[in-house]
Simulated scan of single mutants.
Amino acid sequence: MRDTHQSLADQISGIFALLVLGVGLTALFLGYSWFWMVFVLGFAVALPIVAILSESLFGRESESEWREDESKSEQVDEQQDALDTLRERYARGEIDETEFERRVDLLLENETVADVKARRGREQKRETERERERN
């Protein structure tokens, strides 16, 4: 998935490289004898400078920041899937309105579906312990 993600610094460098190529080829086709200097100076001097400046000005997203963004989007997807499942079960009549609302509240107050499952497991464990105490 990293291949589809391009930072602004990468785009600026690519645009500048195309500009150097265009100017150099235009100079070649127009018959200027110094066309080769456009390529040498453009790619060997100016492009690295543009890349360094764009990186320092705009900054690159570190891989850890990118992974955090990706994991947040996965969490949102999981939460949306869980909400969709709850809606379907409520629509089919498998759960009543109060149970539906309780589960939606649990989902919304937790970050991930795994948090909900862990909390549900703790609640079931407490209920089991209470039943043992009663007996």
Score class of each variant (00 low, 15 high):
Met1Cys: 07
Thr4Asp: 15
Thr4Met: 12
His5Leu: 15
His5Pro: 06
Gln6Asp: 12
Ser7Trp: 06
Ser7Val: 14
Gln11Thr: 13
Gln11His: 12
Ile12Met: 12
Phe16Gln: 06
Phe16Asn: 08
Ala17Pro: 00
Leu19His: 06
Val20Asp: 01
Val20Asn: 01
Leu21Val: 14
Leu21Asn: 03
Leu21Trp: 09
Gly24Trp: 02
Gly24Ile: 08
Leu25Trp: 01
Thr26Ser: 09
Phe29Thr: 04
Leu30Gly: 03
Gly31Arg: 00
Gly31Cys: 07
Gly31Met: 06
Tyr32Met: 13
Tyr32His: 09
Trp34Arg: 09
Trp34Asn: 13
Phe35Glu: 05
Phe35His: 02
Trp36Gln: 11
Val38Met: 05
Val40His: 13
Leu41Asp: 15
Gly42Lys: 07
Phe43Lys: 04
Phe43Arg: 05
Phe43Ser: 05
Ala44Cys: 15
Pro48Glu: 13
Ile49Pro: 06
Val50Cys: 04
Ala51Ser: 15
Ile52Val: 14
Glu55Pro: 09
Gly59Arg: 05
Gly59Ser: 07
Arg60Tyr: 06
Arg60Val: 09
Arg60Glu: 05
Glu61Arg: 04
Glu61Leu: 15
Glu61Ile: 08
Glu65Asp: 13
Glu65Pro: 11
Arg67Thr: 12
Arg67Glu: 13
Arg67Gln: 13
Glu68Gln: 10
Glu68Arg: 07
Asp69Met: 13
Asp69Phe: 11
Asp69His: 09
Glu70Asn: 10
Glu70Gly: 12
Glu70Thr: 10
Glu70Ala: 15
Ser71Trp: 11
Ser71Gly: 10
Lys72Glu: 09
Lys72Arg: 13
Glu74Gly: 03
Glu78Asn: 03
Glu78Lys: 03
Gln79Ala: 08
Gln79Glu: 04
Gln80Thr: 07
Asp81His: 09
Leu83Cys: 02
Leu83Lys: 02
Leu83Ser: 02
Leu86Met: 01
Leu86Val: 01
Arg87Trp: 09
Glu88Gln: 05
Glu88Phe: 09
Arg89Pro: 00
Tyr90Trp: 05
Tyr90Glu: 01
Ala91Lys: 10
Ala91Met: 03
Gly93Arg: 02
Ile95Cys: 00
Asp96Cys: 01
Glu97Asp: 05
Arg102Ile: 01
Arg103Gly: 05
Arg103Tyr: 03
Val104Asp: 00
Asp105Thr: 08
Leu106Tyr: 03
Leu106Glu: 04
Leu107Lys: 00
Leu108Met: 08
Leu108Phe: 05
Glu109Trp: 03
Asn110Thr: 06
Val113Ala: 06
Val113Met: 05
Ala114Pro: 04
Asp115Leu: 14
Asp115Tyr: 01
Val116Pro: 00
Lys117Pro: 01
Lys117Met: 10
Gly121Arg: 07
Glu123Asn: 06
Glu123Ser: 13
Gln124Pro: 03
Thr128Val: 14
Glu129Gly: 08
Arg130Gly: 09
Arg130Gln: 10
Glu131Leu: 14
Glu131Gly: 06
Arg132Lys: 06
Glu133Ser: 11
Glu133Trp: 10
Arg134Asn: 06
Asn135Thr: 12
Asn135Val: 12
